[in-house]
Computed example of a mutant assay.
Amino acid sequence: MMVRLDQMNSEEFQKYLSFAIKYFADEQIKSGNWKLEEAISKATVEYEKLLPEGQDTENNHLFTIRDGSKEVGMIWLAQITNEKGFIYGLNIWEGNQGKGYGKKTMQEIEVLAKKFGLKSIGLHVFAHNNIARDLYEKLGYKEKNIKMEKTL
């Protein structure tokens, strides 16, 4: 496996954005945060705030993950301050999951983050996403906050 991170072009970004809005909306519904009828519009607003200039939004680095010429996923790293980064998205496309692409991508993004001068990287993972939580813990990411809620 030879993982390479290539800056997204506009076509790849549009494909990612369509996927990401739906995925984020679905995850918010699963978590009990949003209702079905409002989820897509709320997710769209969030992405418009985070990426007002699309893939050209300053301090945001959106990459297509490739294994050779094959597209296997995407990762989005935002530079929050001069020293802190935040991964807003890591998605390995269906059919490519469970093959080590997530782990290798995280290792590659850490190399790039250091080149950008970052000293730390944060990320968010939904509590129900045990596969992602396990991966991040194995890579040395530590929980900093835990939000808990009870539905009545």
Rank of each mutant, 00 (worst) to 15 (best):
S41V: 10
E83M: 03
V125Y: 09
D26F: 01
E137H: 11
Y16Q: 10
K15Y: 11
W93D: 14
K35P: 00
G102Q: 10
L36D: 12
K142M: 06
Q55V: 02
K138N: 14
A20Q: 13
K70F: 01
G68V: 04
N129I: 10
Y47D: 09
L77G: 08
M2S: 11
M106R: 04
M106K: 04
K150H: 04
T44Q: 15
E11W: 01
L135C: 08
H61L: 06
L36R: 13
A43Q: 08
T57K: 02
E83S: 11
G73H: 06
E27I: 01
W34K: 08
F126C: 05
D26E: 15
D6F: 01
Q55T: 01
G100K: 03
L90V: 13
A39C: 06
R4Q: 13
K103L: 04
R66D: 09
M8R: 03
I40W: 07
G122L: 02
G32T: 13
E137Q: 15
A113Y: 03
K119T: 13
Q97L: 04
N91I: 03
T57N: 07
G89A: 15
Q55A: 04
H128T: 09
Y88C: 00
D26L: 06
L51G: 03
N130S: 14
I109E: 11
S10M: 03
Q55K: 04
L5F: 02
A78K: 15
E37A: 09
E71H: 05
E143N: 06
K70Y: 01
H61N: 14
I109D: 10
A78C: 07
G122Y: 02
K84A: 11
T64K: 09
L112Q: 14
L118D: 08
K147L: 12
K104F: 01
M148H: 04
A25Q: 10
K119L: 11
E53L: 09
G68A: 05
E38C: 03
F116A: 07
R66P: 01
A39V: 07
L152I: 10
S18W: 00
T105W: 04
H124Q: 13
Y88D: 07
G95P: 03
I21Q: 12
V72N: 08
I21T: 12
D56Q: 14
G117P: 02
K15D: 15
Y141N: 10
F116W: 12
G89K: 02
H128F: 15
L5C: 07
K84D: 12
S18R: 11
G73A: 10
G117C: 07
F126G: 07
Y88W: 11
M1S: 14
G98N: 09
E110N: 08
K30I: 08
S69D: 15
F24L: 07
T151M: 07
K84E: 13
K147H: 12
Q7I: 12
Q7T: 14
N96E: 14
K103I: 05
Y16I: 06
K49F: 03
V111T: 15
R4W: 00
